[in-house]
């Protein structure tokens, strides 16, 4: 089942440069999609359009079959949550608990049910020990967990992550990526993640590559990364294994495998046969 359908979407900030230039695609319910592209390629614009934070000049977006427009925006926002890049810019409450409660209050969840909902989601994300702490005193990774718990407590079908791990240290990145993968697998939440992290792209089901406001490719991550030349042309990183393959080819040695383990075995085979 399709949960998001985007049709001929057009958007421009200044009526000159197209940030979204006739974009169409569909996203399956429960799937995990990453959007990659260099800065300025239009990927954040696309996320903001899907979340109803920007209004398209033309074209349409259907969320769970409902057309995104001014009338429906409130009911659509109930289905969707966003986690932003900078963990410091998204806190309101003076404690972790208050912060998660804020969204629930906005959705008129009765006070007597709130506590249970908050504790449930805080536990899921591993925040039990932090409930009475001030969000500003947490590490970057912990802050993003609070943001995710706040998003989850609203019971969304879709969560959009806008470079949610890019400001975190390696451990924070790993933790948040694990949580995203778990949400996708265990809770069947549709995940859309804008990222620069190749490892994250590889853990998702699908990848959309953006360039100059258009979709350059949309495919499984393994297929996308086969096209290393095209990726490089639009300023994107190529996985290390593809770089190894290329470097060996330059020295006149062609290997068939795409992953490092396979390559190492292949090379050793060649070594032993020689």
């Amino acid at each position: 089942m399709k949960i998001i359908e985007v049709k001929n979407l057009v958007y421009s900030y200044d009526n000159k440069k197209m940030a979204a230039n006739d974009i169409s695609f569909e996203i399956e319910k429960g799937s995990y999609t990453t959007i990659i592209g260099h800065n300025g390629s239009g990927k954040s614009t696309l996320a903001k359009l899907m979340a109803g934070l920007l209004e398209a000049k033309s074209g349409e977006i259907l969320i769970d079959g409902i057309k995104l427009n001014e009338e429906n925006i409130q009911s659509i926002r109930n289905k969707m949550a966003i986690v932003f890049q900078n963990p410091d810019n998204q806190f309101i409450g003076s404690t972790v608990k208050d912060d998660i409660a804020f969204g629930l209050e906005n959705h008129q969840v009765p006070g007597n049910q709130m506590e249970a909902i908050i504790l449930e989601y805080a536990h899921k994300i591993g925040l039990d020990a932090f409930m009475d702490k001030e969000p500003s005193n947490l590490s970057g990774g912990q802050k993003q967990r609070v943001a995710i718990a706040g998003a989850l407590a609203m019971g969304p079908d879709i969560i959009i992550f806008d470079e949610a791990t890019s400001m975190l240290d390696p451990k924070g990145k790993r933790d948040i990526k694990k949580i995203m993968s778990d949400l996708h697998k265990e809770k069947n939440i549709t995940i859309i993640s804008i990222t620069h992290d190749i490892e994250e792209v590889l853990q998702a089901d699908n990848c959309i590559v953006m360039n100059a406001g258009k979709i350059l490719m949309i495919d499984k991550p393994s297929k996308i990364f086969e096209k290393s030349e095209e990726l490089r042309k639009v300023g994107l990183e190529v996985p290390f294994s593809a770089l190894v393959k290329e470097a060996l080819k330059k020295e006149g040695l062609k290997v068939k495998s795409d992953d490092l383990e396979g390559m190492v075995k292949e090379l050793w085979q060649l070594h032993s046969n020689h």
């Binding site: 190894v244 060996l248 070594h271 020689h274």
Partner: peptide
């Protein structure tokens, strides 16, 4: 680049 050269030499 250097590593590939070394690998090719050893292979």
């Amino acid at each position: 680049e250097d590593l590939s050269k070394t690998i090719v030499k050893e292979v």
